[in-house]
Computed example of a mutant assay.
Amino acid sequence: MPRYGARARRTHEYARGVAVAPPAVVEPVPGNGTTIAFWPDAEIFGTARCSFPVLAERFRQVAFLDRGLRISLTDERPAGEARAVLFRFPDGVRDFVAALDAEAGAALHPNVIGFEREDPRMAGTMEAALLWNGCREERMRGFANSLATAQGGTHVDGFRDRVAAAVTAYARERGLLAAADPDLRADRVGAGLTAVVSVKLDRLEFLGATRGLLGNPDVRVCVGEAVREYLGSWFEGQPERAAEVVGRIVRGVPQD
């Protein structure tokens, strides 16, 4: 009989998507969790050799996108030279933005702006973070259900549009833009911006065959509203930093 507090360990094996046998109870174990053992099929993938750097980068990305998730990767193939990495990021996409900024050569900056929200209108959740710093280029990453959307989509469009609207509104309120001045364009506001916007949806809608362009129409509105609200609150709560950031954007000067 299993001892008090132990749980039954169950195994289930598949081959090419088909169950080899029904789930089987193996032995009692303490605690809980899931372990997946996977062996690539050379006839399907073309090769059975896994790339440690490729897997490590993907697992690192997933750990960023799922705050607090712990992922370890060990390569035992080199005899006596095993490699191992562990990924866990307690601040999720905020840590992602800080890492992207550091990789671009900018100094680590404490003012990463981040928020998360669940919105039933889009049947899902959103998490986003941004930081103005460093060079003039925009570094924007979009994800849907932890999959990179290389071509962007409604989540990225809603994010960029509302960031520009929030910056424009703040600039007008503080007299940094005159009434006759046009609104700040998204590409101008995006200069020096590092950002990650991640949505997790019950139903994904992609445009095109590559699954790189998110098409859910409600996502654009929901993400845009959240960005405008949270960024506006950050501006109000950090007036000195907000005036510095927005002032530099209006003048077209890169962030320090």
Rank of each mutant, 00 (worst) to 15 (best):
P110C: 12
A171P: 01
R83Y: 02
E225Q: 13
R10D: 09
T47Y: 00
A186I: 01
P217A: 14
L130I: 02
T125S: 15
R136Y: 11
R60L: 07
S146N: 14
G80P: 02
E236A: 15
G232I: 07
F115S: 12
F115E: 03
F159S: 00
E236P: 00
A165P: 01
P28H: 05
L108V: 11
G92K: 02
R174T: 10
R248V: 12
L213Y: 11
R220H: 05
T168Q: 08
F206T: 00
R174S: 01
V223L: 07
A37L: 12
E81F: 05
R16E: 14
R67H: 10
L204K: 03
Y14G: 14
F87T: 04
E173W: 09
N32W: 01
G152Q: 07
Q255D: 09
V97C: 11
A123G: 04
C135M: 09
V156S: 06
F59D: 05
T125E: 11
P53T: 02
E118F: 03
P239Y: 07
N145K: 11
F96Q: 08
R60F: 04
E229H: 11
E240W: 05
F52M: 09
D101Q: 14
R58G: 10
E13C: 13
A123W: 01
L65H: 02
A56I: 02
Q238F: 04
A186M: 06
L204D: 01
R241T: 15
E116Q: 13
A129R: 02
